[in-house]
Design a protein around this nucleic acid. Sequence first.
DNA 1: CCTAGTTAAATGTATTTTGCAAATAACATA
DNA 2: TATGTTATTTGCAAAATACATTTAACTAGG
Lengths: 219, 219
Amino acid sequence: MERTFRQPLVMVDTALFTIRDEHLCLILARRQEPPFEGVLALPGGFVHIEEDADTAMAARRVIRHKIGFDAPYLEQLFTFSGAARDPRGWSVSIAYYALIPSSLLDQSQVAEALPAAALPPLPFDHPQIVAHAVERLRSKATYSSLPAFLLPGTFTMNELHRIYEQTIGTRLDKASFRHKILEQGIIEPLSDQFRVGAHRPAQLYRLASKALTPFERKI
Amino acid sequence: MERTFRQPLVMVDTALFTIRDEHLCLILARRQEPPFEGVLALPGGFVHIEEDADTAMAARRVIRHKIGFDAPYLEQLFTFSGAARDPRGWSVSIAYYALIPSSLLDQSQVAEALPAAALPPLPFDHPQIVAHAVERLRSKATYSSLPAFLLPGTFTMNELHRIYEQTIGTRLDKASFRHKILEQGIIEPLSDQFRVGAHRPAQLYRLASKALTPFERKI
DNA sequence: CCTAGTTAAATGTATTTTGCAAATAACATA
DNA sequence: TATGTTATTTGCAAAATACATTTAACTAGG
């Protein structure tokens, strides 16, 4: 195969969202090698074209290496490119974002989960990637069941409500929210299962199979 | 710079939407070189890392080469990758989609604009790219002013209405559509300009500056 | 000059969806 | 048994929507 042009570095970077203390957080990794060795950054790595069927597989490898298991929700975000984004020269980074229920993370990993609103200075063009990822999550949250993937397998209506408010960043009416979510059928009640406490017990729900269907909208 | 891994081919492909005879169409190009020489395909090309600031610039170059001018609307779509998509081996294609007002195209180019619903067999993974692009356009049309970019600079309310119906694929109530579009402020009337005919003249509109703001939505 | 034909635009109204406030339910605990 | 606490439901006004109809503003043809 003849190549009459130089070829760029191709890598993946991942924005891993989770919730900690009611705040939307990102899981960062301390870089093991130069450039920016020792600096906190988005987990990433090169695409291995001998092993990876596609770049999503590379992203899954990076995530598994970082948190030890697969993310319940993973989606390609945007591809960043150019000469300025990496000191090693012209490069392409296919960015992914994923949603990780904090219940699945152990303490050591949670230590590197920092609030998306107050991240340290990040290397490369990672601030841009984060901005895109937050924007995408916000946008999708308003018309899909995405935020539910930040919760563990079962959750109460109020937990779901709070997590939507967290990701969207605005208040949502409780009654309307409950009504709309139930009507969309993206979650289903676990019959006879409730979360107890010093108050009325709360119905437990789980994601329904049709959970990823976006809500219906009309012009 | 040392590289301990093979690097993939990096290219861009473009899905160029336009409207012809009230149908949503894609502009195709006959391939000039192997593989698939002479076959109709999405316009594309390699990313030239010596010239292109980023892959969007490569996409703009491809589009300018195909239709002779820049697209009024261009957006990155998705990045496709893998060993199977191109017979030359593992590759990455950053796909873009663009909206082209048919009024700007001359006849020769229009000849290669074929209905998105009835395309010939396409090479590589171009069918997948087309599916993604149509899906994205549909989705965005329901909550943004995107379809207006398929129209010439000035247009009537009914033309806009028809183009929304075309891209979304469903009927939309005329009165509600008019009301909602005007309320969103994405278009503005050209005072004292009307399209005449053997009937009541229609007010002409143009895209307002805030045209790209997505519509407001709520859970 | 009048009328039929045609498309644009506005209007009316029943229905549905939302926002907001309040009431009721179901506990644990003291 | 009363009290505090959170869950869930209810009620209603306001806004948005779907659907049907009416009115407006022209041209063309007699």
